[in-house]
């Protein structure tokens, strides 16, 4: 049986893990390879590395990093952040990334998703969507979310549901869906958003943003069609290990890999 995936997310800046990672017993907490090894030992199903470097040197650093990670851990990982063109995607895949995630550029140039999936296969092209609730207070029944790009700074006017369906049609193999309203709140995943999108598309959806308690993972898997849950701070601050989450989910009857 295909299991539900638990995916820690690591923010990378200039080749180092940022976002106040506090792992004990690590020689160098900022080294992505060391952090990846910790999550590997915790039986994480995948890892997502999101590059937030702003510098000019970014691409080379990211490719070097991907090579280093692939040399040291033998588990699937996705890389995203500032992926611009086919060349970027090819370099990251050749360096050992399983999947490449595209966000802003997919909105600006949707044909990039098609070209990339035709060339490298849908299974390695992830479209990341940052969605914000814009439901009209006078019409609360009709839930609506808008797509934002450039790290959540720029509204696009695109409806998140429409864009998710279009991304799947364009050839995306997976959607990484982040709720901007819930991200960082630790109040749980945006169930309405995740449910709406995951039921509307036939490709896997990764829920992201808001995980703070074990119950939040169960909530997401029991109420939506999400294939995976992504989380950052709950793991970084060692409140729970990936294994804690999976053990809990197994007790709840969710199929996980343990």
């Amino acid at each position: 049986m295909l299991t539900k995936r638990i995916i820690p997310c690591l923010d990378i800046k200039e080749g180092r893990v940022v976002k106040g990672v506090k792992f004990l017993g690590l020689r160098d907490a900022g080294d992505p390879v060391e952090v990846a090894k910790v999550y590997d030992a915790q039986e994480a199903d995948e890892l997502v590395f999101l590059d937030i470097t702003a510098s000019f040197e970014k691409r080379r650093i990211l490719v070097d990093l991907v090579e280093k990670i692939a040399k040291n851990i033998f588990m699937p990982f996705t890389v995203g952040g500032g992926v611009n063109d086919i060349g970027d995607i090819r370099n990251l895949l050749n360096a050992g990334a399983e999947k490449v995630s595209i966000n802003t550029q997919a909105v600006k140039f949707p044909e990039l998703v098609t070209e990339a999936s035709e060339r490298f296969g849908s299974q390695c092209i992830v479209v990341a969507i940052d969605a914000k609730d814009i439901t009209d207070p006078d019409n609360p029944e009709h839930l609506k979310w808008e797509v934002f790009i450039n790290g959540g700074r720029t509204p696009t006017g695109l409806d998140a549901l429409d864009w998710a369906k279009k991304a799947a049609k364009l050839g995306a193999g997976e959607i990484l869906l982040t709720s901007m309203d819930f991200d960082g709140t630790k109040d749980g995943y945006d169930i309405a958003l995740t449910k709406t999108i995951s039921e509307a598309v036939s490709i896997p959806v990764i829920a992201s943003g808001g995980a703070g308690k074990l119950e939040h993972f169960w909530d997401c898997f029991s109420k939506t069609q999400a294939s995976a849950c992504l989380a950052a701070s709950i793991f970084h601050y060692q409140e729970y290990t990936v294994k804690d989450v999976k053990t809990y989910l197994q007790l709840k009857g969710v199929a996980v890999r343990l």
Binding site: T3, R5, E199, S202, I203, P204, S227
Partner: peptide
């Protein structure tokens, strides 16, 4: 063949 309960690609850990 994609179905409501069967996402394609088949992605992740399976036994």
């Amino acid at each position: 063949e994609a179905r409501k309960d069967l996402k394609v690609p088949h992605m992740g850990w399976n036994s």
